[in-house]
Amino acid sequence: MLELRLVQGSLLKKVLESVKDLVTDANFDCSATGFSLQAMDSSHVALVALLLRSEGFEHYRCDRNLSMGMNLNNMSKMLKCAGNDDIITIKADDGSDTVTFMFESPTQDKIADFEMKLMDIDSEHLGIPEAEYHAIVRMPSAEFARICKDLSSIGDTVVISVTKEGVKFSTRGDIGTANIVCRQNTSVDKPEESTIIEMNEPVSLTFALRYMNSFTKATPLANSVTISLSSELPVVVEYKIAEMGYIRFYLAPKIED
């Protein structure tokens, strides 16, 4: 038996919107730790890892570890039927081939349940070791989204370079080139608007902008984004989900042949 009650139901709606274009089908894993997902896109270039810790739920009952295969497009269709202020409860019985999403309006005057069919998915779980990164950039998530969107109108790839000068995002395309440099900026009053660059050594890596733009669909989940870079490692783009966990996107770099 599984019953997870999330008062801030809009978080789950936002999570789905940020992953459904990257991954079609995925297993949601439920354990004492929390509600999690790890899935790769079909070309094995990008991976999403989600964790919503059990403590973040108002009620969290998971009698035994359960993996539920869901079509994310269908799940998104159902969650779109929940109001932004609704409380969402996820329910499943052991051995059942369905999951139920229950939506309660804040005033309890409307209660809806949507039952969705589960599916068997051959999951390819990857072991992601802890790594030391050459550089970690934290910046406003909206600023990062804006940069990715702007650069994708010029080129297909972005070179992210971190030096002691700052972090540079560069692209080139048929019509020309673009470079955007963000310098460390901790002087602003609001910490979520600051840009913080931790650099152990300079690093420069190339990534497909198509994926970066897809990751930025998680922007509504967090004011800040953290970009961790190391040469010859996938970049990690992380959005912290307040008091609950995170959504992390891993993207393999492009290399010169």
Partner: peptide, 14 residues
């Protein structure tokens, strides 16, 4: 010419 690396060349299946 640039080549897209796969995640599978960095991480192992568990």
């Amino acid at each position: 010419m640039q080549r897209q690396k796969s995640l599978l060349s960095f991480f192992e299946k568990s």
